[in-house]
Design a protein around this nucleic acid. Structure first.
Lengths: 223, 223
DNA sequence: GTCAAGTGGATTGTCAGACATTCTTTCAAT
DNA sequence: ATTGAAAGAATGTCTGACAATCCACTTGAC
């Protein structure tokens, strides 16, 4: 049996597509934080039945991307600053570890992928496309996380970042923050490229602390 | 308005109870790893309809407590040793951090709770009740995690431990491991009680590494 | 006798429609 | 203006159904 016979394509179900669509909608800020999601409306908009929709909503609720209060139904969580801080702290823990591990084990060709992703972010940072900034930054990180050698670390990190996507999008929309972000990411890249674990961890920690500060600022200015 | 008016009791829905029941069933090893769960059977056993059951299953799937393969339905994941290693590594990262933080901020009365939990585990370790060992050990940890000052850390740790409950139950059923576990936990407790963060982290790391080794042994002897 | 193709039962994915329960909001009465 | 009751809206859950898919077994060919 050829080795890639295990990689048969899994059929995608409506449920999965619905979850993806809703996730994307949440990321792009279609829904206001704190707002309720009306099941009957969503069914129509997504073109699916209510049972199917509810399955998708349960998945998202388990990921903490929506809240599910009994007899009030699904709603977009309105994160407090304390929630954000807690998430950023754990993200720091995981991301610093991932960057450190990545610096010791990333293969050559993935390193060039990482460089490409960094360039893409540089371009996005100079442009006015704030969506591109978020996605290219996400690409950069996902390469690092994919090469940290621990799929669980990757999975949990992704989940955490998803929960704060709303605020990241906001702070990334600031021209200054994007530029600063780029120089921090460049520092991380160089440390990884030279295999310097200690420097990589340090740069990573610095980057997250700055990101957290920027998120806090943009949060306070908004309220 | 009195301050505790916000703490009104949330009505528990059938969905939540179903999730809890299934989770408990998975923890207690009712289902064999790798085995499929037949929806029609579960409906009858739980006394609920299939749509409701499927909502519950989606929640559990998002927590990675069950697998959901399109057109094959839900099944209990059969973790490989690599999966386990990855989980234990992240657990180490989080738990060491939690123990360290806890040592610096746990209030007096929670500390006595922790001591009580430790005694309860000591008793369970000497007994033959392997379920009691697991639950009392879980109590011990949950007090620590609840006092680390970061609810996200707590939440993710709980999720990770849940995923390896099957193997923890196995290794805890060994008399020797339970005793050793107790002395390691005692060390953690003493470091926390004396507020020595460094010692607390060290003891915590040691404990997890031993637990991982024990899990690996019991896994290999079983296969 | 072994291997391949085909067939039938079992199971999942999804839908429609319904109904009781529980909020929420409006409107009337004090 | 405050309270209370009734109407409306939305959720929680169920029944029943049907097509698509998978699995195991039988059948047939070599």
């Amino acid at each position: 049996m050829p080795p890639d016979m295990n990689l048969r394509i899994l059929p995608r179900t409506v449920q999965q597509e619905t979850v993806d669509k809703l996730r994307l909608a949440i990321f792009s800020g279609v829904f206001e934080p704190g707002s309720r999601l009306i099941e009957s409306q969503l069914c129509v908009q997504l073109g699916i039945s209510r049972p199917s929709l509810r399955e998708a909503l349960r998945s998202l609720a388990a990921e903490r991307l929506i809240d599910f209060v009994p007899n009030r139904g699904p709603s977009i969580p309105a994160l407090t600053w304390e929630d954000m801080t807690a998430i950023y702290e754990v993200r720091e823990l995981l991301e610093v570890e991932a960057v450190g591990r990545c610096s010791q084990r990333i293969p050559e060709e993935q390193l060039s992928e990482l460089e490409r992703a960094l360039s893409a972010f540089a371009e996005a940072a100079s442009s006015n496309n704030s969506l591109a900034r978020v996605t290219t930054a996400a690409d950069f990180y996902s390469i690092i996380l994919a090469n940290c050698g621990n799929p669980i670390l990757e999975e949990i990190h992704r989940g955490l970042v998803a929960r704060i996507s709303f605020f990241r999008a906001r702070s990334m929309s600031l021209e200054g923050r994007a530029q600063q972000s780029f120089s921090e990411m460049q520092e991380i890249y160089q440390a990884i490229a030279s295999g310097d674990e200690k420097a990589a961890r340090k740069a990573s920690r610095k980057h997250i602390l700055k990101a957290m500060a920027a998120a806090k600022e943009s949060m306070e200015s908004a309220s």
